[in-house]
């Protein structure tokens, strides 16, 4: 299921990152890697604040939909 379905406070493991473009590459640089853990810190209307590796990253809904957990 997409990452947007995760609840605030939940820690999940990334299964797959969809799409084939530079944005996905950028997500990888920021630490979103398959089998890596992500914690949802907060969520407003589908936009997410996530904890990945040891940093916090904000993602909009469309981007979060592409990360499958």
């Amino acid at each position: 299921m997409p990452l947007t379905m995760a609840k605030a406070g939940e820690t999940v493991v990334i299964r797959k990152i969809m799409g084939r473009d530079e944005v996905r590459q950028h997500l990888a640089e920021l630490g979103f890697a398959v089998d890596g853990k992500v914690t949802v810190v907060n969520q407003i209307a589908g936009n997410l604040i996530l904890k990945v590796k040891d940093s916090r990253v904000a993602l909009d809904r469309n981007m979060a939909m592409r990360i499958l957990i």
Binding site: H26, I49, V57, A58, L59, N62, M63
Partner: peptide, 9 residues
């Protein structure tokens, strides 16, 4: 562009 941004501590 999609919104992707690191939030500093």
């Amino acid at each position: 562009a999609p919104f992707v941004m690191e939030l500093p501590a």
